[in-house]
Every structure is written in structure tokens, then in C-alpha cells.
């Protein structure tokens, strides 16, 4: 059995190495979607679904097709095509099953394709030599960390929207500064591994 146990992987992915506050992945949708709590949660769940499924498909592609046939250089193309197809699939499913969420997410749903967190995590799985099980847990936990960050942020922004902020800071700049403060707070989780 590999050395890092699964609970540690989950804790690390959500808190210690949060995908947004520590690895800097998934910023675009993070800043765009996190204005309302309800959309933030829906987006988070969509990302959990896509990220876990993306890992479920890309890991075997790397290990069973790309590596044995010395086609490692096709990783970027194959991974992103898998992700784009998955997102299309999720769109179709959501449109049929939960049309209200589909409407609420709007353009941010197809934008999950360009969410660096999804492709990033798929590649991290390979780079850090995770096993299939570890990779699946890691991607699900990373997506949950992403959702957590999104929800905290939306909560803060909902309150911030009614406060007065210097006009040059309004919108994205103040959002980034709040994100910075949150990142600082998350750095406090550093000792958790012990």
C-alpha cells in the first residue's frame, strides 16, 4: 500500500494545499461565479463531478495507452479533449434533469472546460505518481476544496456588495484582496499534517 494514507490526502487537498489558495488553480471561475451563494454551490458540485470523472478517465488513458506506447507528448491534447467531452456530457445531462441549475450556471458551465483546476489536477495525479484510488480521492477532495473556497468567498462577497468600497477597487480588485486574506487564513492549516 502506498505511503500516504487516504485521509491525509483528503485533508491536505481541502485545507493544506487548497486548490485555489495554495495551488492557484481555478481562479477565473472562482472570481466570476462566487457572487451568489446558490450558484457557487451548484458550480462547486458540477466541478466535483467533472473533476472526479476526468481523473477516472485520464489516469487509465495515461497508464494504459500513452505510457506503454511512448506517446506521453499527447497527454495535453488527450486530457483536454476528454475534459471538453465530459463537460458537454454534463451540460446535456443537467439540461435534461435539473434545468433550473443549468440556467443559473449559464456560461460558467461550458467554462469548466477552461477551469485550470480540472486539467491541473488530472496532470498532478500523474506527476505525483498517485495510484488510481489515490488519484480519484485526491481529485474529489480537491474539487471539494474548490467548492469550499467558492462558498466562503460567495458568503463574503454577498455582504461586501452592500458596503462602500473605493471605486477603483470595486469588483475584481477587492475580490482578489479578500482572496488574499483567505489564502493567508488557509496557510494557518500548515501544521495540520502533524
Amino acid at each position: 500500500m502506498a505511503e500516504t494514507n487516504l485521509v491525509m490526502i483528503v485533508v491536505a487537498a481541502i485545507l493544506i494545499n487548497n486548490v485555489i489558495f495554495s495551488r492557484f488553480l481555478g481562479i477565473c471561475p472562482y472570481l466570476g461565479v462566487s457572487k451568489k451563494l446558490s450558484t457557487a454551490f451548484g458550480m462547486g458540485m458540477a466541478v466535483v463531478f467533472v473533476m472526479t470523472l476526468a481523473t477516472a478517465l485520464t489516469w487509465p488513458i495515461q497508464k494504459l495507452i500513452l505510457e506503454p506506447f511512448d506517446m506521453g507528448y499527447l497527454q495535453t491534447i488527450s486530457f483536454i479533449l476528454v475534459i471538453a467531452s465530459l463537460v458537454q456530457l454534463v451540460e446535456i445531462i443537467l439540461k435534461k434533469t435539473v434545468p433550473t441549475l443549468y440556467q443559473a450556471l449559464g456560461i460558467y458551465l461550458p467554462l469548466i472546460t477552461t477551469n485550470c483546476a480540472v486539467l491541473g489536477v488530472a496532470i498532478i495525479n500523474i506527476n505525483e505518481k498517485l495510484s488510481y484510488l489515490q488519484a480519484l480521492i485526491f481529485s474529489m477532495a480537491s474539487a471539494l476544496g474548490f467548492t469550499l473556497a467558492l462558498i466562503i468567498f460567495a458568503g463574503i462577497r454577498e455582504r461586501l456588495a452592500i458596503r462602500k468600497v473605493p471605486s477603483v477597487f470595486a469588483g475584481i480588485p477587492i475580490a482578489l484582496i479578500v482572496a488574499g486574506l483567505l489564502a493567508m487564513a488557509f496557510m494557518g492549516f500548515a501544521g495540520l499534517g502533524n
Binding site: 505511503e3 491536505a12 494545499n17
Partner: peptide, 10 residues
């Protein structure tokens, strides 16, 4: 060799 137990993982 390597360790996966670094602060940021690998």
C-alpha cells in the same frame, strides 16, 4: 527516491 509527504506533496 521521493516522498509524497512534503508540505505541498511531492
Amino acid at each position: 527516491t521521493f516522498s509524497q509527504k512534503g508540505y505541498s506533496g511531492f
